[in-house]
């Protein structure tokens, strides 16, 4: 059975239309990523609202113009959360950018949490990919492709995300440390490990006694003390391998905070552009031609 389409999505689809350059504005928290929209681009907003939240299914269906903070506030009343980062933006913006939350080790990756996506295509049709159930291998995974596509292949209208229960306890601990990899080696499934070259921050989640026992392990390698939360993060975002992140230096990045076990580094200096493999570029271009042959979706932005 095809799930009915919300009227807000139909209205959004009409607004997108089938001609002329168009892009969706979210919270503009990552607006400068990979180019800027062309001058003649028409900017529109995606619809807002939570359509259904089902803790017993571990799913939430939400219109993509909804602020992440609103979504999380509503889910909190149900004891659930998503893995979307809350940095003041919208659900659609978080999906379009595809960057994971600081606590990705505990919350999971965005690409793994998208169960169904509805988007408006370049020719003004509403397209669905995936389904609002937690397990599904029915057809091609367009919704995976769309995450991180910066609105260049389709304009997102509605998403169903997998949610997870909020753990009973979530606490941060910190200590001076030159060897953050040690934390990753001795702690079982930490939610986050951050390191700025001299200090390590560890986020532990779970039941009270388990967290206490994990802290005992931490105390064998450093003078860990509880703190309010994560440190402030520099502006630029690097993506490298986990082992590279645990060996990074200020000479390379300026001030930095590295996510250990993940490979994200927030740094003063921008990461140098990586070369794209020509075959990957060819497939990317083919996809753009297939999905947006006239180049009207978010023109000027590249992936």
């Amino acid at each position: 059975m095809k799930r009915p389409i919300d009227q807000n999505i139909k209205d959004f689809c009409s607004e997108v239309g089938a001609a002329g350059p168009v892009a969706v504005e979210g919270g503009k928290t990552r607006w400068n990523l990979n180019g800027f929209p062309s001058e003649n681009t028409r900017f529109i907003k995606a619809p807002k609202g939570i359509l259904s939240a089902k803790p017993e299914e571990m799913t939430v269906t939400v219109l993509t113009g909804t602020p992440v903070s609103e979504l999380h506030k509503e889910l909190q009343t149900l004891g659930q959360r998503t893995c979307l980062p809350d940095r003041g933006g919208t659900v659609g913006g978080a999906l379009a950018v595809g960057e994971n939350d600081l606590s990705v080790l505990g919350k999971g990756r965005i690409r793994d949490s998208v169960l169904q996506l509805r988007y408006v295509s370049a020719d003004g049709q509403i397209i669905s990919s995936g389904a609002p159930v937690v397990k599904n291998v029915s057809g091609f995974n367009l919704h995976k492709l769309m995450v991180g596509s910066l609105g260049t292949l389709g304009l997102f209208a509605e998403v169903t995300l997998r949610t997870n229960p909020i753990p009973p306890i979530s606490k941060w601990f910190t200590a001076a440390s030159k060897h953050p990899q040690n934390v990753f080696d001795i702690v079982y499934k930490p939610a986050a490990i951050l390191w700025d070259g001299e200090t390590t921050w560890v986020q532990l989640e779970g039941h009270q006694r388990d967290v206490e026992q994990q802290v005992q392990k931490l105390l064998t390698i450093g003078n860990y003390e509880e703190v309010e939360g994560a440190p402030g993060l520099p502006r630029c975002r690097w993506s490298i391998s986990p082992t590279e992140a645990s060996k990074i230096t200020r000479e390379e990045t300026g001030n930095f905070v590295a996510s250990i076990g993940v490979g994200i580094v927030w740094a003063d200096k921008p990461q140098s552009t990586k070369e794209v493999d020509p075959t990957v570029r060819r497939i990317t271009n083919s996809l753009k031609s297939e999905f947006d042959p006239t180049g009207r979706l978010n023109p000027g932005r590249y992936v």
Binding site: N141, K144, G148, S239, G263, D277, T284
Partner: peptide
């Protein structure tokens, strides 16, 4: 070619995710 990578968030479209399944 290689899709995805051991970097935290490989740049570009998620061709790995589209390919799996």
């Amino acid at each position: 070619t290689t899709f995805g990578g051991i970097d935290a968030e490989p740049s570009g479209l998620d061709l790995r995710g589209a390919f799996i399944g």
